[in-house]
């Protein structure tokens, strides 16, 4: 997984993607690129369309508008089907099957590409007995079997919908370790939705934030963080302080005499301000709270013709 792996086509590309149900749009105007080999967090408020986006990528849903490609192929193609594994939030498994039977099902559904060793390794690492029935397993054990099923397929792209939501911290850490190690060994591209912002910090190197209006943030995590500055200081009046006015203010929070803001600086910051690089959580919260802030899509996440460059958006 050197820099060279990122070259070539993206693992996933969405262009103007939308999905409308009778009650309205579940996903709208979604455009971004996920380069190969990245581990990407998919974040957004409830109802922003995270599950819908993953469902379209996994060919469980058809889009109403736009297009999505996986390694250049449509989600319904044999090529995309072979290279993608999807782990739905409810982790559907047959409750009456044993663990061994579940893995056998995986083998028979994926002839030619099934890696029994890898699947068994994941199950064994969690001390899940192979002859136990799925219905008798704990939530963590069941998630582990679902992971084994997904990884046994040897996917190039792994789609995970809230994979850790019902697990205790110990199991979550263990499974994240398994996920990261598998990705390290095989260069798997991962796209996973999550509500646990702090958890994403060490796990994801790429990030896509969607809200009802479309993509809010997309790109390399370090690049996104470094494009922003958290400023704190004493304010001199109402509104944005004059010496900060030419920067893009994503979110500002005046409280008494103190002024705190998350900026996308356009040049150096002058004035008596304390500055700091935001952590991922601060960045996400600021963008999710201020829906009118202009989106930021870094060059590696842009689809052709899209221009939301770091410097391209004026205040």
């Amino acid at each position: 997984m050197s820099d060279g792996t990122y070259a070539g086509g993206p693992a996933l590309e969405a262009v103007g993607l939308g999905k409308r149900y009778r009650r309205g749009w579940a996903l709208r105007d979604c455009s971004f690129r996920l380069p190969t080999g990245r581990i990407c967090g998919l974040v957004g408020p409830n109802g922003a369309g995270k599950t819908t986006l993953l469902g379209i990528a996994a060919h469980v849903l058809e889009p109403t508008a736009g297009d999505l490609r996986i390694f250049g192929a449509g989600p319904g193609s044999a090529e995309a089907g072979r290279r993608t594994a999807f782990l739905a939030q409810e982790k559907p498994l047959f409750r009456r099957f044993t663990v061994a039977e579940t893995l056998r099902l995986g083998r028979e559904l994926n002839p030619g590409s099934w890696d029994q060793g890898a699947a068994e390794h994941i199950v064994r690492a969690g001390n899940v007995p192979l002859d136990a029935r799925i219905g008798t397993l704990s939530g963590g054990q069941r998630t582990r079997v679902a992971f084994a099923l997904a990884f046994g397929k040897r996917p190039d792209l792994l789609l995970l919908d809230e994979p850790m939501s019902d697990l205790d911290p110990l199991v979550r850490h263990e499974l994240m370790g398994t996920l990261m190690a598998e990705a390290a060994e095989h260069g798997t591209t991962v796209l996973m939705s999550s509500h646990m912002l702090a958890e994403l910090e060490s796990v994801c190197d790429y990030l896509v934030v969607i809200a009802s209006g479309g993509v809010r943030l997309a790109g390399d995590v370090d690049e996104l963080r470094e494009a922003h500055t958290l400023v704190t200081g004493v304010r001199d009046g109402e509104g944005t302080p004059r010496d900060l006015a030419h920067h893009t203010v994503v979110e500002s929070r005046p409280s008494g005499r103190q002024y705190t803001a998350l900026l996308r600086p356009d040049g150096p910051i002058s004035g008596p301000w304390e500055t700091d690089t935001p952590n991922l959580e601060e960045l996400l919260l600021a963008y999710l709270r201020s829906s009118e802030a202009p989106p930021l899509i870094t060059p590696s996440a842009q689809v052709p013709g899209q221009a939301h460059g770091i410097r391209a958006v004026a205040a």
Binding site: M1, G37, R38, I39, H173, M176, G177, T178, M180, A181, A183, A184, S202, V203, C204, D205
Partner: peptide
């Protein structure tokens, strides 16, 4: 990755 659940990249 296994011990600290850190992204390999």
């Amino acid at each position: 990755a296994e011990t600290s659940a850190v992204n390999p990249n």
